[in-house]
């Protein structure tokens, strides 16, 4: 891999979140520069950089089970422009829920984009409970013992330009047990309700837009 020719694309609107943290971890090994997806204006100017890269790594958050709209817009724009010549593409998606299946659609989306556009799909990495990291190092992840070596292996695949199998991330994170599911659900709800009440709102009140209709 030509180190100067890797494009590390952050698809999150947050520049210091988990998506960017994961790309920075990759950048330390592979070199290259992290490019942040502009949240407004035309995306046309990003297309030449994508076409000229030999490897593209996209890291983004999971919104409603797949990547955010702005990345979909970039993929649509890139697909219309064409001009891809076998670039290698890797994808990373991270979301709050501790289940791979909740976020996996993003990886499928990238694979289908690659297949349509003469881009070599090299594999993805799904990271559950990524939102809770809030940009903190991967070593703070609740499954760090298995996630850290798996993600570092994913980075090695990028550095070597080799395909990364789904089993890498699938085996690194297991869904929580019944008891932990209950504990997480209660704990997370407690934190959410505390936050809502802190701002003077009633979590049981009808939604603001429903009140607005009346």
């Amino acid at each position: 891999m030509n180190k100067s020719n890797i494009m590390l694309l952050c698809a999150s609107p947050r520049s210091k979140g988990t998506s960017a943290m994961l790309l920075e971890r990759i950048r330390v090994v592979t070199g290259g520069e992290i490019v942040f997806l502009p949240q407004k204006g035309s995306l046309d100017k990003l297309i030449p950089a994508m076409q000229q890269a030999s490897t593209i790594v996209i890291s983004g958050p999971c919104y409603i089970n797949t990547y955010p709209a702005r990345l979909v817009e970039l993929l649509e724009t890139a697909s219309s422009a064409g001009g891809f010549t076998g670039q290698k593409l890797y994808g990373i998606i991270n979301g709050g829920m501790p289940y791979v299946h909740t976020h996996r659609h993003g990886i499928t989306l990238l694979q289908l984009f690659a297949e349509r556009n003469n881009i070599a799909w090299q594999g993805g990495f799904v990271l559950g409970v990524g939102a809770m990291l809030d940009g903190n190092p991967l070593e703070k992840h609740m499954d760090r013992k298995t996630i850290v070596p798996a993600f570092d292996m994913f980075i090695q695949h990028i550095a070597e330009g080799s395909p990364s199998p789904d089993s890498l991330y699938e085996q690194a994170q297991k869904p929580p047990s019944k008891i932990m599911t209950y504990v997480f659900s209660k704990l997370l709800t407690f934190l959410v309700v505390k936050r809502i009440k802190k701002h003077g709102h009633d979590p049981d009140a009808p939604n603001w837009y429903i009140r607005e209709q009346k």
């Binding site: 797949t66 709209a69 702005r70 979909v72 993929l75 649509e76 984009f113």
Partner: peptide
């Protein structure tokens, strides 16, 4: 690409 267009995805998000 197996999902929805960005116009619809913006609504979903």
């Amino acid at each position: 690409f197996g999902g929805v267009s960005h116009h619809i995805k913006k609504i979903m998000d």
